[in-house]
Amino acid sequence: MPEAAPAFHDAFAAALAGDASALAAGWGSGADLDAGLTVYRNTIAKGCADALTAQFPTVEKLVGEAWLAAAAIAFAKDHPPRQASLLTYGQEFPDWLAAFPPAADLPHLPAIARLDLMWTDAHLAADAEPLPAGAFAALGPDDLGRLTAELHPATRFARFDLTLPALWRALQAEAAPEAFELDETPQGLLMTRPRLDIEHRVIGPGACAFLAALTDRRALADAAGLALAAEPDLALDTAFAELIALGAFGRLIPAAPNRDQP
């Protein structure tokens, strides 16, 4: 019966989802079948939960192992893996957490989860040589209006209206802080991986604006102008030197044509 095989997969999927009678049409029934199905269900639930919790170590520090494991099992029901490599599983978890009733009194948990995902993203990104120190200083005045710097393939950054980046960084320490006050000070977090180890720093609005401009391939001179507009008392030379030293940039390349001018 050549058409039986596709029907089996549907039946087994239904049995895994809870309807063991789905296999009764030719593939089996009884207590041994139920016990076996439970083994598959448990292995699947544990596999999803282990993969997810591995992605969110900082969330785990805030809520504990048992809370996150329970959340992970609930999440996997709504968002099963879509590919066999689970290295990037859980992209929807921060948004899902925002609507997860037990997390209602933890309003900052989704942002912390987002920063954990950013870490994995930087961890798995392509390798590349970072831009060497002094590369900006060697440029002539014309170059600043003509060139831009690629972000290093592992560079990620995000901007927040609160000091969540400082909280996330504090939680990376072995001894996480007992209490932490969040300020209403805009902050960015920059992560990159110039070689094997991830570097992360809290950055200000000026550096965020600079990195955002480079993401749009704006010329270095334009990007510097936008950085100063976002943070008028920013010490540009020090800020650039820090970003280069961190390994945030890749190659120097021609800037995108300026869209503001005809």
């Binding site: 050549p2 089996f8 997969h9 999927a13 598959y40 993969a51 099963p80 893996p81």
Partner: peptide, 17 residues
């Protein structure tokens, strides 16, 4: 199957098909 992955190794009837 159909875009969903389960982290397990599932069985099937060993038919000619």
């Amino acid at each position: 199957r159909q875009g969903v992955y389960v982290p397990d190794l599932l069985p099937f009837p060993r038919t000619r098909a």
